[in-house]
Simulated assay, not measured.
Amino acid sequence: METAIPTTEISDNFTTKPTIFPRSGYSILAFLMFLNAAFSIFNNLLVILVTMKYPQLRNPINIFILNLSFSDLLMTLCGTTIVISTNYHGYFYLGEKFCIFQGFAVNYFGIVSLWSLTILAFERYNVVCEPVGALKLSTQRGYQGLTFIWLFCLIWAIAPLLGWSSYGPEGVQTSCSIGWEERSWSNYSYLITYFLTCFVIPVAIIGFSYGSILCSLHKLNRKIEEQGGRTNKEEEFRVVVMVLFMVIAFLVCWLPYTIFALIVVINPTLYIPPLAATLPTYFAKTSPVYNPIIYIFLNKQFRHCAVLCLTCGHIDLSVPEEDGPSMIVPTEIQAATKNNQVTPA
């Protein structure tokens, strides 16, 4: 096996077939990405179809869930499907311009998904912890949130095209992303700012939002117990588990990016093996598979609509009591949010 070829050399010659990784390794990656793409396309298309078909799912907060599936679908079509082919060939044979396009698309749609999760968490916090503010959530406000997400994320995706960092082959040279391995102050400043705006701030908002939801639910249950009422500990446990899944999934997707960026900035001379350099974007490419499962399919109301859609109406799992909000909305504000919100179940 030959010595790993530096990224800068491959960026200048996309017709060179590198031998960074064994041929069988590329085949395994191609197969894994094929499975990833198949599940991602099916899951997200189903979410979009069901949401558009059933009016009860189209409400202000679900705009962000629909946007999440849309950006995840685009990320799969513009990223994962390309990686299947390039891994099959063993190198990025499509050329430099296509490499830049793929890097831009994956970066852009990935950040859109990330900030969709962030705004979704904050709106759920408003529903549970700020019931008065939740009443103000309207379709117009939802579209304003979407406009912010797409424009804000576009800034970070376009920046490398304008010379602040760059896009190019990464790791085992079958996919393209931000030029993590580029050793320049321009790249370092981009990575640091990217780290703050696309990881630290979202994690802080998500942590605060879901942490507040758990505290609110716990305080409500304790208040009910003090008044001699009965609480559902199993339900509270399910909420805790759901929140943990949300946070862990978010970290699995984006923490490798963060660690990689910090390593490059802190120790520019450190050699990073090609496979290790590939892992961050591959972890991100798995998010379109599990995002619909965690954020959407575990929602009772959506799950029932999905079963109706897939079985052409022959199987109906819904029951009357589930027309209302889901379990993470405290009883005190269910009446206020019944017709407005759909939260995880």
Score class of each variant (00 low, 15 high):
243 V>Q: 01
15 T>W: 05
195 F>Y: 08
283 F>V: 06
277 A>N: 14
309 C>V: 00
47 V>N: 02
188 Y>H: 09
201 I>D: 01
154 L>I: 05
10 I>W: 10
321 E>T: 12
5 I>Q: 11
122 F>H: 14
155 I>Q: 05
328 I>E: 13
49 L>I: 09
306 A>C: 11
111 I>W: 06
333 I>G: 08
46 L>I: 02
234 E>A: 14
46 L>A: 09
223 K>T: 12
251 L>V: 05
77 L>P: 03
134 A>S: 12
316 D>T: 09
226 E>Q: 14
257 Y>V: 07
57 L>G: 01
298 L>P: 04
80 T>Q: 04
82 I>Q: 06
189 S>A: 11
129 C>S: 14
117 L>A: 04
295 Y>W: 11
112 V>L: 05
265 V>F: 02
214 L>C: 01
68 L>N: 04
281 T>F: 08
178 I>P: 01
59 N>A: 04
104 F>K: 06
95 G>P: 01
345 A>P: 15
8 T>N: 12
228 G>S: 03
185 W>R: 06
196 L>S: 06
1 M>K: 07
214 L>Y: 09
207 G>P: 04
172 V>P: 02
272 I>T: 08
148 F>N: 03
54 Y>L: 04
246 M>R: 00
310 L>Y: 03
344 P>S: 00
222 R>Y: 13
72 D>M: 12
118 T>H: 04
128 V>I: 14
48 I>T: 01
22 P>T: 07
105 A>K: 03
56 Q>D: 14
345 A>N: 11
46 L>G: 02
295 Y>Q: 04
139 T>V: 10
240 V>N: 11
313 G>K: 03
179 G>Q: 05
335 A>W: 09
147 T>R: 07
301 Q>S: 15
315 I>C: 12
166 S>R: 04
20 I>K: 07
257 Y>S: 09
14 F>A: 00
124 R>M: 11
258 T>G: 12
163 G>E: 14
322 E>W: 15
173 Q>M: 11
219 K>D: 15
276 A>L: 15
99 C>N: 05
26 Y>W: 09
97 K>C: 05
1 M>D: 07
47 V>P: 05
24 S>K: 07
329 V>E: 08
30 A>F: 03
178 I>F: 11
81 T>I: 04
178 I>A: 01
67 N>F: 12
213 I>A: 03
160 P>L: 07
83 V>K: 02
339 N>H: 11
202 P>L: 00
258 T>L: 13
28 I>W: 08
54 Y>S: 00
31 F>H: 01
17 K>D: 05
200 V>I: 15
